[in-house]
Nucleic acid binder design. Structure first.
Lengths: 103, 103
DNA sequence: CTTATATTTGTCAATATTTGACAAGTCAAT
DNA sequence: ATTGACTTGTCAAATATTGACAAATATAAG
């Protein structure tokens, strides 16, 4: 059930010597919610990822990467063709990123 | 808007000389829905992917791969760390697949 | 141009999923 | 047994997804 992002922010919280209560109030969520995010039972919003980074003095991109990786993993975890699909998606990403970022 | 899976099944439908109407009725959906799936506006269910493969005499895994790749792409498309996250997810997949498939 | 058929677009309500909040639970230390 | 930190379970509200339909736009044929 645990995921990479959750484990990371739990670890960061502990090395920063903070309680769930303290962090939760900063993010304006309750402690059960934070507990669930840390254990991978709920997923954080992108905005919250940035708040975690700031609060724990961690690198934005590092946390965003773990957070996004968990979401990818969620999509593929039960699929036989997961690995092949990743390759195809990566290829698609490469191709589309040529045409500069839209939207 | 178009995606890989949609383009593929549209192509397959045409090489098989079938109309949306005919395919849709087999899948028990209406033609607007099929149209949307082909253009990537809606995503097919996994079950439908298998029906497409059967109907078009195509390879299950090939279609499933494109279908899954589109879903991965959807998750990462607007993210700066997309590529790094893919690497991390792939790594996670490798690690977890050692412990034989659960669920 | 008019009709006929194929596909696409737009909208909407029904359904499903996700979210946030709360009460109550466990666990560890005192 | 009380306190503090965290976890679990449940629920309704908010959001998102789905399927169905009517209407619009092609495309092709006469």
């Amino acid at each position: 059930m645990a995921n990479q992002f959750g484990s990371k922010i739990k670890e960061l919280r502990e090395t920063n010597g903070l309680l769930q209560r303290q962090v939760a109030s900063q993010l304006e969520i309750d402690t059960p919610m934070l507990s669930k995010i840390e254990r991978g039972e709920r997923k954080a919003k992108k905005e919250q990822v940035l708040q975690f980074a700031k609060l724990y003095k961690a690198d934005n991109n590092e946390l965003l990467t773990l957070w996004l990786a968990d979401q990818i993993y969620d999509v593929i975890k039960d699929e036989d063709v997961a690995s092949k699909a990743m390759d195809v998606a990566q290829e698609e990403l490469k191709i589309k990123s040529k045409r500069t970022k839209k939207k």
